[in-house]
């Protein structure tokens, strides 16, 4: 379980997260929605320990991410997929995927690479297994990014706008892969602007507004009268649908 209680985060004098409470259990797919600047990326970065938190508590399966000793264990349980892929440019797809299993989980290199190839095959990239990131298209790079996160067998997958750097065609190919992963029961925290997709794969929607979680509802409720009853949510949804 990912458990967030009273999370505060500021950058200098700007408070970005103001007391977030959120619990994510195994098997859930939680989409985090909210307008630009509402703090979605910052929330993800507080869960994977990339930002120091200023108040409250974030634990992953009981491991407190603000304690250096426990961060490593917390990070072993979650995997992150980035908007701009962030692949290691000097390594092939297989090497990108196998690095952490070998170095962190001490999997023998041969096994880790075989597993990497299996993952790549699942996302339709067997042919490109030995290509370098610069030799791949954006959609292909993101599929490698997803495999890299999955290779650590994380309990939780954190995804921050993983399709917003992709054109519509590539977005579709990446989303269909994510839908598959969701179906297999992987827990996901999914920051996105793809409202319809969020609706189709999420069990729950968390809505951030100016650093506060103003809605945390089951998907059907969020997109029904219940959600629409909240002016900020209604405003956001109508704006997103217009775009």
């Amino acid at each position: 379980m990912i458990s967030i209680t009273g999370l505060h985060k500021s950058f200098g004098s700007a408070t970005v997260l103001r007391g977030i409470d959120l619990e994510i259990s195994q098997g859930e797919v939680v989409s985090v929605l909210g307008s630009s600047g509402s703090g979605k990326s910052t929330l993800i970065r507080c869960i994977n320990g990339l930002e120091k938190i200023d108040g409250g508590r974030v634990t992953v399966d009981g491991f407190d991410v603000s304690k250096p000793r426990e961060l490593a264990d917390a990070r072993k349980r979650s995997g992150t997929v980035f908007q701009l892929f962030n692949l290691y440019p000097h390594m092939t797809a297989v090497q990108n995927i196998a690095l952490a299993p070998v170095e962190v989980l001490n999997v023998p290199r041969k096994d880790a690479e075989a597993e990497a190839r299996r993952l790549l095959q699942q996302v339709g990239l067997s042919e490109r297994a030995d290509a370098y990131p610069a030799q791949l298209s954006g959609g292909q790079r993101q599929r490698v990014g997803i495999c890299r996160a999955l290779a650590m067998k994380p309990s939780y997958l954190l995804l921050d706008e993983v399709t917003s750097a992709l054109d519509p065609e590539m977005t579709a190919e990446v989303l269909s892969i994510l839908a598959n992963i969701a179906k297999q029961g992987t827990t996901m925290v999914f920051v996105t602007h793809e409202i319809e997709f969020a609706r189709s794969i999420s069990t729950r929607i968390a809505f951030l507004d100016k650093g506060q979680m103003i809605a945390d509802l089951p998907t059907e409720d969020f997109f029904s009268d219940k959600g629409m009853a909240m002016p900020r949510v209604a405003q956001f949804l109508s704006k997103m649908r217009k775009d």
């Binding site: 990339l50 990070r75 995997g79 980035f82 962030n86 290691y88 962190v104 890299r148 650590m152």
Partner: peptide, 8 residues
Amino acid sequence: EAAQVSGL
């Protein structure tokens, strides 16, 4: 950051 979050 990608390397950090993967636990390296």
